[in-house]
């Protein structure tokens, strides 16, 4: 093997990445184990946050502000969006901070740096699936049954993971040089939340702006989830397609950007 200054475009070494897949497994396992270690509530934390937000939204956005919910009981309407949003916001935040948190590792040991920001995006899926099971329980309680389109849910989950990883890769790579990112992320996510159909349905957005609105991949994820599980609206193919394209662009461009700047991480982090 020859070690020399790299120049020009850096490609991702898939063969090497493959040889480190066990490390990815250990990193994801670590992330999951550590999330709630030395806490009292432990895994209950997964549902505590979306649950209380659901209550607050139901009272203020639903009962007081009387925002529409496509005919679905408010608690289910909000909780279904919260689980996807919690995954997205959590994965983006943790992924964006991951390189700085693992500074010591990065400046001491070599391994593909890509694994670090991808870890939170994968580990977060466990929380998502647990919260998802709670959602199914709530649906049964309210006598809401999924439509046949629920078969497309894995597709929505994929959009969600790609979008969160893509944004996370950008933020993580930028954070190595610009610590502004730590301050920017919570703010960015706050804005992002209101740009997504969480406290209101996408049907509130005028039809002519819907495709534009769907550029936000979270729109596709939540609208798809609600349509497939709760039957709020006919399955929104056009929204899903636009969101799928943006999430793919985010992920691939995130990968490319990360790979270009990865070579100086250990020097300046």
């Amino acid at each position: 093997m020859i070690i020399r200054p790299r120049e020009g475009w850096q490609l991702i070494d898939l063969k090497e990445l493959n040889s480190y897949k066990e490390l990815l497994y250990f990193l994801v396992a670590k992330e999951i184990k550590l999330r709630y270690r030395q806490t009292v509530l432990g895994g209950l934390w997964i549902v505590v946050q979306p649950f209380f937000l659901m209550i607050v939204f139901t009272i203020f956005m639903g009962k007081l502000a009387k925002l529409p919910s496509d005919g679905i009981p408010y608690p289910v309407f909000y909780f279904s969006a919260m689980i996807a949003w919690q995954y997205f916001a959590g994965a983006v935040t943790r992924s964006g901070n991951s390189l700085i948190i693992n500074m010591k590792l990065i400046s001491r040991i070599y391994f593909p740096r890509l694994l670090i920001p991808l870890t939170p995006a994968l580990a977060g899926l466990l929380d998502f699936f647990i919260a998802f099971a709670v959602l199914i329980g709530m649906m049964l309680y309210f006598h809401i049954y999924p439509t046949v389109m629920a078969l497309f849910l894995p597709f929505g989950v994929l959009i969600m993971v790609l979008a969160a990883s893509g944004v996370g890769l950008f933020l993580a790579a930028l954070s190595v040089k610009y610590r502004d990112i730590t301050a920017t992320t919570p703010f960015l996510l706050q804005l992002w939340m209101f740009a997504s159909p969480i406290v209101y349905p996408a049907s509130m957005v005028p039809v002519k702006y819907q495709l534009f609105y769907a550029i936000n991949p979270v729109t596709g994820v939540i609208e798809g989830l609600r349509a497939a599980l709760l039957g709020t609206v006919p399955f929104p193919w056009h929204i899903m397609l636009v969101s799928a394209i943006t999430s793919m662009i985010l992920f691939i461009s995130g990968l490319i950007y990360f790979q270009q700047v990865e070579r100086y991480f250990a020097d300046i982090i």
């Binding site: 070690i3 020399r4 200054p5 790299r6 001491r108 070599y110 070579r263």
Partner: peptide, 8 residues
């Protein structure tokens, strides 16, 4: 450099 943590 030898352990590839940083490049020359």
């Amino acid at each position: 450099i030898l352990s590839r943590v940083t490049e020359p």
